[in-house]
Design a protein around this nucleic acid. Structure first.
Lengths: 330, 330
DNA sequence: CTGAAAGCGCTTACAG
DNA sequence: CTGAAAGCGCTTACAG
């Protein structure tokens, strides 16, 4: 920078002003400085800038599960939002261990990160506050939520997603809708049941409680078993909504094995929109978790907090999207 | 830091020495400083340290595919290695776009990262050098390789992995081994064929060329089709090795559908060890890609380069591991 | 063994 | 509109 100043015949203060697009620089001086910077290939030292300006243009993702099936899509959303503002993203993995979380937080604070995204790669559930108090550093929760911390939590709208599935099944004329829910220990399952049941009730087609099952695992095997059981009834369902694509995969197999047609005899809708959904035979209609968008929202909310926006306790539910495929569309 | 110095009655230079475990501090002074640091809850400012010491204890992962199926495991390995040395990891996603890669590199260099891991989340293949010359910043390639850059590339040992599968099948007495390879445009497929064929030849049981197939996609459907074709032969194989778990999934289904037993009539081995492998019926024996270990090795090699170790052009092949499950073990 | 001084590369009041 | 000066919070020769 001193070199640039010397060559351009100005002070380093002026170079700095040009670099930071300050208005108080004359146009011809600005141009001269810009030219010199280009000619010399000068690049700002972000570390020095950070020391002086007390802001590092860096945020961190602290996750409990770097290998969760939803982690990458969430991270990509965050990275996208951050990159758009020339903010870099640090990655830290706590493995869900509070001790590791504390160590990472300490390191990240030492590094003067501007903000933190505390993220689960796993499932929506409440969690306690950060393992270290963060009085001066904004943060948000992503795909999990705080109970009382004065920050937003970014979540999928599971209830609304299930409602989309319900409306779609009603639209295509289904009247007996079976529901295979996931393990009750997953909070999202309650929301998905609520969305389905409220929508059907509002349409005057209340859910038959004997057609509602809680699987004990998310596996295709459970989906198969529960679907098969429903198909043996004298009054089998004409549609089955599954709370995950894995369950739905099992449902498809069970329907096939009984030589029923999909969606002719039984329509099937999944949840999540994992990559396997589109590869089913027939391709599976499913409710897509808005992971990318959730990541983006988390990044944007965090960055506005970094820039001084107020934060308060808040659950932000990002809408899901229905992907209609052949398992409901003949 | 000045506060600590004042309270402990020493100079900031001494505090710094204590912080950095320099030997030239008296034991009682050291203890006094340590106590004061604890009492005041002092934390070093990494940014200031970085400015002065010209090292940031930060490396970056620059990937072309943040959502690749192998990305998270690779990243976790890198994160683990870095964390062990108290080094932080920045994440950047180029989407495989050289222009984006250049932009990210520029930003990362401005941030004075100590080193870079240039990673594919996709597949092994050669690539050109970094989109920006990196004269002063060490880097390594991960899950892809440079043609001539003087740096190591960390890759899976596909050839050795296929050899493991071959040895295992010979061990359990199989003599007619079919091979369903992936699309030839993936470099790894050549290595996997080599490993299989060399091992069988060495054992005096050369591969029957009519039992070697190149699928056009990695999909279960292709695995099904090619397996089914082999099973209609008068001399069907007693084992099928597939170059991916997805292909193997199709193979399992085809064998089932012909009412043959696994592994009794036909043993099946996959490749990759994706999570679906263990959930097959029967659970699938497969060659595990050493993703975690590859990430670790990449991190360690990079960090030793950061610490001054010499680098040269080198392909580091990390051994795969055979996971024996019920599809070969009765 | 300890400390005074310089300096890493910037930005920011402030004076002119 | 431009620049001299101070300072962000550390570390590092160097002197004692």
């Amino acid at each position: 920078m001193r070199d640039v100043a010397t060559v351009a015949g100005v002070s380093t203060a002026t170079v700095s002003k040009v670099l930071n697009d300050r208005p108080d620089v004359g146009p011809e001086v600005r141009q001269r400085v810009l030219d010199t910077i280009g000619r010399l290939g000068y690049r700002v030292n972000t570390v020095a800038r950070g020391l002086r300006s007390r802001t590092t243009d860096t945020i961190a993702i602290l996750t409990d599960d770097l290998e969760g099936i939803f982690t990458t899509a969430l991270m990509r959303g965050v990275e996208e939002a951050a990159s758009a503002y020339d903010v870099s993203v640090l990655l830290a993995n706590s493995y869900g261990d509070p001790e590791k979380e504390r160590k990472h937080l300490r390191r990240l604070l030492d590094r003067q990160v501007d903000g933190l995204i505390i993220m689960s790669g796993n499932r929506v559930r409440p969690r306690s506050g950060p393992a270290l108090p963060l009085p001066d550093t904004p943060y948000v929760f992503l795909y999990e939520y705080g109970m009382s911390e004065p920050v937003p939590s970014i979540l999928p709208d599971d209830c609304g997603g299930a409602a989309l599935a319900a409306e779609h099944l009603l639209d295509i004329g289904r009247r007996r809708i079976g529901f295979i829910n996931g393990p009750a220990s997953w909070e999202a399952t309650a929301d998905r049941l609520d969305g389905l049941s409220a929508t059907l009730r509002a349409a005057g087609q209340p859910l038959d409680p004997t057609l509602v099952h809680h699987a004990t695992t998310w596996s295709p095997e459970d989906g198969y078993r529960l679907t098969d059981a429903m198909l043996t009834r004298p009054d089998p369902p004409d549609a089955i909504f599954c709370a995950s694509d894995d369950l739905a995969t099992g449902a498809l197999a069970a329907i096939h094995d009984r030589d029923l047609t999909i969606p002719g005899d039984v329509a099937v809708v999944g949840f999540d929109d994992r990559s396997l959904a589109v590869h089913q035979r027939p391709p599976l209609t499913t409710v897509a978790l808005p992971l990318l968008e959730m990541g983006r929202v988390a990044g944007q909310r965090l960055l506005s907090a970094v820039n001084g926006a107020d934060q308060h306790h808040e659950l932000i539910k990002v809408p899901c999207e229905l992907k209609v495929r052949a398992s409901t569309a003949p």
